[in-house]
Computed example of a mutant assay.
Amino acid sequence: MQCSYFDAGVCRSCTLMGTEYSAQLADKQHDCKTLLAAHSRLEWLSPITSSEAGFRNKAKMAVGGTVDSPTLGILDAQKSGVDLRGCGVLQPGLRDALPRIACFISQARIAPYDVAARRGELKYVLLTEAPSGELMLRFVLRSREALSRIRKHLPGLQRALPRARMISVNLQPEHKAVLEGDTEIPLTPATTLAMRTNTIDLRLGAKSFFQTNTAIAEHLYTQAADWCAHKNPRSVWDLYCGVGGFALHVAAGARHVTGIEVSAEAIESATATATAAGIGNVRFIADNALRFAHESRAADIPDLAIVNPPRRGIGTDLAHWLDDSAVQTVIYSSCNAVSLARDLEAMPALAPVQARLFDMFPQTRHYETMVLLERR
C-alpha cells in the first residue's frame, strides 16, 4: 500500500507502510512463533489475512487548526493539527464522512482545542462505521460551551450525513492525554450502533469496545465457535466479554454461556443483543473477571473458558486460577503476544495445542493471536 502522508513524512503511525504485505505477515508470524517457541508441540494454523487498505472501522481523529479551517487527524510534535481525512487505512465510508463533519465544526463554531495554549473546545472526533454504512459520531469536548450551537446546527449535519444513526458529545475537561471522559450526552434518539458480525447484530454503545477490523473480528469469532463446537462443552465462560461477540457466537444448542465484563454499558449492550437475537442460553454479568472466578461455586465452573483481555493480558492471578481450576479447555484471544507468552507460562497444566495469527492491523507490527489450550 502506498500512502502520500507517510511518503511526505507527516504521519508515521503505520510503521510498516510501504513494506510488501507478504513480508509484513511473515515477520508477524515469525515474531509470534518466537515468543511462543517454548510450546514446541503447538500446531500453527494458516494466518488469517486482511485487506491492506480500507479496513479500519474506526476513525479517532484529533482536532486541530482553527474553527474556520479545522484539521482532523493527528497532532505533530509541536501539537499542531495534521489533517488526515484521506487516510487510506480507513473504510471509504469514514473518509467520505470526515469533510462533512469538518464543515459542521465550522458552521457550529466549535473551536478546536489548542493543546499548547490550553484553550478551545473540540479535542477529538470519534467515528465508527457499521457494515450497514450507519455511523456512530462522537464529539469530545472540553466543556458544554459549544453544546447549544451543536444542537442548533445538528439538523443540518443530519441532512448532510444521513448515515449518522447515533451522535453524542463526550466531556473530557482535563488537560491530559485521555481520549474521553465519563460524561456522555446523547444528541439522537439512538444510543447504540448495530455492528453486524457474521449473523449477529452486536450493539455498540458510545464507549463500547469493538475490534477495529470487522472482517477479522468475524474470523476471530468463527474460529472460537469452531473450536468450541469441536470440544462441545456443556458450559462456557467468556471473560472480558465486551459487547458479547465471543459469547453469542458460541451459544449453540443447550450450551450454557456466561459473559463477564467490568463495563456495565457493554453488558447492557450484550444483553440487548441476546434478547433481540432470541439467544436465551446466555447471560451477561457486570463484574471483574478475577473476582467472578474466585467467588464462583465449584459446581458453576465451566468446561471451557474464553479469555480476551486488554494488552496487559489476564495476569498471573487469573492464570493461576485457571491452571488450578476444573476448566478443561481455554481459548485465549490476545492482542499482545508478549503478555500472551507470559500468561501461558503461568498455566503449565493447560497445554497450547493450536494457534492462529489474525492480521487485525495491516501496515503496523500489531496482530491478534488465538490459542487453544487443553488440560494435560
Rank of each mutant, 00 (worst) to 15 (best):
S296H: 14
I331G: 00
L290D: 10
A229L: 06
D317N: 03
I306C: 05
S269L: 14
F246V: 01
A217G: 05
A337N: 06
G244S: 07
V338D: 15
A274E: 12
P302R: 02
Y332R: 07
H249E: 02
C228D: 07
L340R: 04
A341I: 13
V243R: 11
P309K: 06
R297M: 13
V236A: 06
A266Y: 07
S334N: 13
T214Y: 05
N308C: 15
A224G: 02
T214N: 15
R312V: 09
A254G: 10
V327P: 00
L239N: 02
V330E: 13
T316Q: 14
L322T: 01
G313V: 03
A286S: 12
I216T: 05
A276T: 12
S334E: 09
I279V: 10
R255E: 05
S235G: 09
R297V: 04
H249A: 14
C228S: 14
V257Y: 06
V330P: 12
A251G: 03
E218Q: 11
G278M: 08
H294F: 10
V327Y: 00
G244F: 06
A247N: 08
V327D: 01
S333E: 14
N232Q: 15
Y240P: 02
L322Y: 07
W237K: 01
A326L: 03
A270R: 09
G278Q: 09
Y332H: 10
N281E: 07
A276C: 03
L318G: 12
H219Q: 13
N308H: 11
D317G: 03
D287F: 01
R283W: 12
G278P: 08
V236W: 10
C335G: 04
F292R: 09
E268Q: 13
G280V: 11
A251L: 01
G313D: 01
A264E: 12
E295L: 12
A266D: 09
A277M: 15
F246S: 05
T275Y: 06
A225C: 06
E265M: 14
A341G: 06
D323G: 00
K231V: 15
H230E: 14
G315E: 11
A293D: 12
A305F: 04
H256C: 15
A229W: 08
G278I: 02
G244E: 05
V282L: 09
I306W: 03
I331D: 02
A254I: 05
V236P: 11
H320E: 11
W227V: 00
G315Q: 07
A305I: 05
A293W: 14
A341V: 02
L220E: 01
N213C: 05
G259I: 07
D226K: 13
I301L: 15
P309L: 07
V307T: 02
L318T: 04
I331P: 03
A298T: 10
Q223Y: 08
Y332Q: 04
S269H: 08
A217M: 15
G244H: 13
T212P: 05
D300N: 02
A251Q: 06
S269G: 01
H219E: 13
S235N: 14
V338H: 15
H320D: 01
N232V: 05
V262F: 09
D300R: 08
A299C: 10
G315V: 04
F292I: 02
T258E: 14
D226M: 15
